[in-house]
Amino acid sequence: MSTSSYYVPATSKWPIISVIFLGFLAVGAGMLMTSGSGLIPFLIGFVGTLWVMYGWFMDVFKESQAGLYDAQMDRSFRQGMAWFIFSEVMFFAAFFGTLFYIRVFALPWLDGEGAKGVTALLWPDFVATWPLMTTPDPSIGGPDAIVNPWTLPLINTLLLVASSITLTFAHHALKHQDRKKLINWLVATLVLGGVFLVIQGIEYVHAWTELGLTLQAGIYGATFFLLTGFHGVHVTIGLIILAVMLVRVLKGHFTPDQHFAFEASAWYWHFVDVVWIGLFLFVYVF
């Protein structure tokens, strides 16, 4: 705080516009799921939301470049981002909790083990295994096979870990005013993340069409796609954020002291990376 007066940002039209488009998005999605119509409001909402994010962030960048934000505003942004990531952690915690509950409690009970083993009277032929290839009611149908963790998933793990490292190098370059290195490492990160997504897509197609591993393939398919799917969405968001950072870097934004937007995207990317490590261990390997 160089002066003791507070900085309060100006009003902005973006929040209210964004609320309107989110409303379109929700109503469109609801209509798509219930009646099949609703593509138009959904697309309006989707495109509109993207537009709003672009506009809102551009305003923030302009203000940031104009030097309007003081140290206090910077701290507010930092804390806001940190708590936002904490909320994301809890979002994934719910899904990991689901996975553990199913594996540790529900399936053994259905198979006749543990405190509620009497349940097996209802499913006399069921055998609990993980991965669950045959569901308690066989008509639901489990997957025919599962993804081998030591093929594409391992490559993906290495890609993401590598991308975290390259991003850290980029950050160091930024701190040392080395624009060229910064750009190179940032591009490398983007490429690694992009390849990760492509491989994930290939794996999904393979799983869905050849392994019979689908959302409907019992609880294994459900948890598999829930965890990897939401992780994939987060990778995509992270890539978009990093791409925006690249554009800003190319425009000459950020200084060694003031580059919180860059740091925030790095936090987010590391978070996505850590989630993947958990996924690799508990969804694929164990």
């Binding site: 259905l110 509620k116 009497v118 349940t119 209802l122 499913w123 308690p136």
Partner: peptide, 8 residues
């Protein structure tokens, strides 16, 4: 009474 499970 939970569908698919038995309580005692």
């Amino acid at each position: 009474t939970i569908p698919g499970f038995i309580n005692e």
